[in-house]
């Protein structure tokens, strides 16, 4: 599938061989292909449209480096604009965990990777920062969800809140808060059940949990393979519970990760981490350059222009 795109692009670029400043027409022609590339990478339509418009204005009139074609130059400008949009102001890896015990709330759709990411971040906090971490599962719905977190806790040597059958999520959250304070924990992480952003009852439930613990970080865990719906999901979770960042999972796959751009552009919230596998150490802090290259799928061209 991606060969087609490259072929199509090189066709377009061959036609744009005039040197000098980028004409409006050059930019338009190249951006038509870039738009397709973004959409094929699952960047949401309104975000792609907005982005193209911005680049159109930015690129027109810019001078073209001698050894590259106008098309290649446009791709480089697009790449830089992508990095610019994706980059947050702060260090994505630095979680706000002052004032112990600091609560971290994990939220997201079903199956996105919340429980796994809870374990990964707990391990990271313990190993890298020497923090004492408590994990609690508020997932009273999915079969064996609490066991899943307990097994992960045992694997990574992080305590989990004892399971009490029949308790409501808000009450589990209160118990976690109390246990974290009494037990001298630096951080307590609340793993929640997967829920649809349109499920009013379950969204209210997690809002109640938020009100009880007042989290220092609320991380939205999103599958990196997500398509056009990413924008709506991020927006709804942010509107209803307020998120402090996004974790993009399954980036070990061959998905292009356009959801990252969509969510960042629409909510303004930083992408903090990427999940790169199922193992407990398969997590890294977000690097805008790498994702930009993946979304655009034209890393070779970018490298070429950078060298020129």
């Amino acid at each position: 599938m991606f060969e087609n795109l490259s072929e199509r692009l090189s066709g377009v670029f061959d036609r744009l061989t005039k040197q000098g400043a980028l004409s409006e027409e050059d930019v338009k022609t190249a951006l038509r292909e870039v738009r397709v590339a973004l959409l094929e990478a699952d960047v949401s339509l309104p975000v792609a449209r907005e982005f193209i418009k911005k680049v159109q204005d930015q690129a027109t009139g810019q001078s073209v480096t001698k050894s590259v074609t106008p098309g290649q130059q446009v791709v480089k400008i697009v790449h830089d604009a992508l990095v610019d949009t994706l980059r947050g102001d702060e260090d994505p890896g630095k979680l706000k965990i002052d004032n112990p015990p600091a609560p971290i709330l994990m939220v997201g759709l079903q199956g996105g990777g919340k429980t796994t990411t809870t374990g990964k971040l707990a391990k990271r906090l313990k190993d890298r920062d020497g923090k004492k971490v408590l994990m609690a599962s508020l997932d009273i719905y999915r079969p064996a969800a609490m066991d899943q977190l307990a097994v992960l806790g045992a694997q990574i040597g992080v305590d989990t809140l004892p399971i009490v059958k029949g308790q409501k999520p808000v009450d589990i959250a209160k118990r976690a808060k109390q246990q974290a304070a009494l037990g001298g924990y630096d951080v307590y992480m609340l793993d929640t059940a997967g829920r649809l952003h349109i499920d009013e009852i379950l969204m209210q439930e997690v809002e109640d949990v938020r009100n009880v613990v007042d989290p220092r970080e609320t991380l939205l865990v999103v599958d990196g393979l997500t398509g056009q719906v990413a924008v709506e999901v991020a927006q709804e979770f942010d509107d209803k519970i307020g998120i402090s960042g996004v974790v993009l999972t399954r980036m070990d796959g061959d998905g292009r990760g356009g959801a990252a751009l969509s969510m960042r552009a629409v909510t303004g919230k930083p992408i903090r981490f990427v999940g790169l596998g199922e193992k407990m150490d398969a997590i890294e802090t977000f690097e805008p350059d790498r994702i930009a290259g993946r979304i655009l799928g034209m890393g070779d061209i970018v490298a070429l222009v950078e060298k020129a």
Binding site: M1, E40, A41, D42, L109, G111, D223, L225, T226, G227, Q228, V229, V233, G253, D254, G255, R256, G258, A259
Partner: peptide, 11 residues
């Protein structure tokens, strides 16, 4: 397949 998945479903 998960309905929230985008174009990666093809792969």
């Amino acid at each position: 397949l998960d309905a929230t998945t985008g174009q990666n479903a093809l792969n």
